[in-house]
Design a protein around this nucleic acid. Structure first.
Lengths: 157, 157
DNA sequence: CGGCGGTGTGACAGGCGCGTAGTTACATCG
DNA sequence: CGATGTAACTACGCGCCTGTCACACCGCCG
């Protein structure tokens, strides 16, 4: 019972996607549960909190009309470069390339240099939405300290 | 003869799309040639320069992974609100809503308020790309003054 | 008038990203 | 060990978007 991580259907409610989406993404290697993969019918996928962040980012990107293909690359970039300062950073997708901007100024710089379209995801609100949804569905989970390690206030520019 | 406007295949080369895309978009009312629509086989679609701008915006949005559905709404917004100061503005798509930002500061503001993902199109580079492509394919067209009426330098921030 | 090139049109195929429905298999309870 | 619930698996189909191909049509030139 609720060992470590989140199960499939639970994840769907938290991030606001359907089970078919989660399933499809896992099968197509978009996002696989990093704690435990499924080993046949009846088994369970266990997603980590980090997985939830990535899933929520993808969810938001989809809502913004960004294709899965590109959302995937952005998530890959987050995986490699995301540290403890999630809340103060923004993911900037410039066509095929992805960049992490630590401040608003960097975003402006990228806007000037970029010749095409920038898709920007502010990670702070994403984490907020995520924690809020987890609290509503997991009011008894005491793992908050481990979930959101270091959040910068969104007041400083 | 190059009366007024641009014909279908010519448009495809300029904005960098396939003819099937242009055709599909015209049939699904995404972007119809504003000068002259097709009246059966053998006739010609005539696109205005304004059409080219919109098409190029859509092209860039597609390259950025944004769906046609949402790109369509952004273009509709441009149509209504775009004045003569194309080059200095940016189209900001916030989920289902679209906004025009006249300066970088407005973009930052939208980033702070927005809870999701912003897709930003800097119209200046779009116009540049467009004019450049037109010059390569239409070296004898003298209508530049009418094409890019007022461009602000991108130094002000 | 008739051939010729350019252009729009219609029909079909195919991939992507899911939804739906039914089935299978583990996990827990009794 | 059997019953039950839950979650993953499979098969099928749809809608969107685009590529391919054959065809119809217009204008031009001879």
């Amino acid at each position: 019972m609720a060992e470590e991580g989140f199960r499939g259907p639970q994840v769907c409610k938290i991030v606001g996607i359907t089970y078919r989406q989660l399933d499809y993404w896992a099968r197509t290697d978009l996002i696989r549960p990093s704690i435990a993969d499924a080993k046949g019918s009846g088994t369970q996928r266990r997603y980590s909190y980090q997985d939830l962040v990535e899933l929520k980012v993808i969810k938001n990107l989809l809502d913004a009309g960004v294709s899965l293909q590109l959302a995937r690359k952005g998530v890959e970039y987050i995986r490699k470069n995301l540290g403890e300062d999630i809340g103060s950073a923004s993911l900037v997708i410039d066509g095929p390339k992805s960049v992490l901007a630590r401040s608003d100024g960097e975003v402006i710089d990228l806007m000037r240099k970029g010749q095409g379209v920038l898709s920007i995801v502010a990670l702070g609100p994403v984490v907020d939405q995520l924690d809020s949804a987890i609290h509503e569905l997991h009011p008894t989970e005491p793992k908050d300290s481990e979930k959101a390690p270091a959040r910068a206030v969104s007041g400083g520019g």
